[in-house]
Simulated scan of single mutants.
Amino acid sequence: MERNHNDATNLQQLLEQISQSSANAGQVSVKDILNSVGERSFGPVVLLAGLITIAPLVGDIPGVPTVMGMIVLLTLGQLLFRRHSIWLPAWVSQRSVPQEKLLKGVDWLQKPARFLDRWTGQRLVFLVDGPGLYVMAVICMLVAMIMPAMEVVPFSANGAGAALMAFGLAIVARDGLLAILATSFTVVTVGFVVASLAG
């Protein structure tokens, strides 16, 4: 995956880009946010989907986890087919959230972002480049596929959001160790959802 010079390299930078996308707007669309992080930024888009899913006031809106899952599926599907830019259909790109809720969610995430950025860095890079990147893409797509079902299992959508956030941050920061932790967390989350639905 080729990096653009405008790509965020940590979580705080991505949050700043999201904040800028909502300037002077009553409603902030998916397209607005995507434009702010870059149309070639596959990693930041996955991180963004995870952040929005777990952000208070935003991720709790019915349907938001499902839309974020669709964005991940469409985005990473294009990555697997080696597209160099991200395309989303209008019915997804024009979905919007209130600016006030988005900014409150971003503000809440600032402190965790500073903490996480201190503990991430370039480690085991081979796990997030080349074949490793495609393996992560497939895992993220599997998480995204079950996100609609997670809306009926309390707190599970937050787990999926955290998993996507971890994978996205691993790609952004080129942190293979974080990718391993994200995979472990994903297995636990999916197992919890399957057990809840089966019970």
Rank of each mutant, 00 (worst) to 15 (best):
V190N: 13
S22P: 06
L177Y: 03
P44W: 10
A170F: 11
L142D: 12
Q122H: 13
M165R: 01
L48M: 05
S184N: 13
Q27D: 12
V135P: 10
G105I: 15
G105A: 11
T186G: 00
S196T: 11
G26M: 04
E151Q: 06
I18Y: 01
L11H: 01
T183Q: 02
V92Q: 02
V193P: 13
I86T: 03
S93K: 06
R95M: 11
N24R: 06
I180E: 12
L169H: 02
S184M: 14
V46A: 07
S19M: 09
F192W: 10
V152T: 14
W108P: 11
L164A: 08
E39V: 11
F167H: 00
R3C: 00
T75E: 03
G168Q: 02
F115A: 15
G121F: 07
N158K: 13
L79A: 07
E2A: 09
M145F: 10
L142V: 11
G121V: 12
S19H: 06
W87D: 09
G191N: 04
L15P: 03
L142N: 08
G63D: 06
N35F: 06
Q20H: 12
A23Q: 11
V28D: 07
T66W: 13
I33Q: 05
L73R: 02
F185T: 02
E100L: 13
L51Q: 13
F42P: 12
V125L: 08
L74Q: 09
T120L: 15
A113Y: 00
M145I: 12
T186A: 03
S156E: 13
Q99R: 09
Y134S: 15
F115E: 14
G77D: 05
V72E: 03
F155C: 05
S184Q: 08
E16R: 09
P44Y: 11
Q122I: 15
G176S: 11
R114W: 07
D7I: 10
A49Q: 13
V135D: 14
F81A: 06
M145Y: 04
Q17S: 10
P131M: 09
V92C: 04
R3K: 03
V187G: 00
N10S: 07
A90I: 06
L164W: 07
V28L: 09
P62S: 07
L80K: 00
F167T: 00
A49R: 04
A195T: 15
I180R: 07
A90M: 02
A179P: 01
A23W: 04
S41F: 03
S156T: 15
N24M: 08
A113W: 02
V64I: 10
P56K: 05
L73K: 07
G159R: 05
G77V: 08
N158V: 15
N6G: 11
T66I: 14
R118C: 10
S196D: 05
Q110P: 10
L14P: 05
P98D: 11
L178N: 03
G159H: 04
L169V: 02
S184I: 14
I54Q: 15
P44S: 09
M68K: 12
A90V: 08
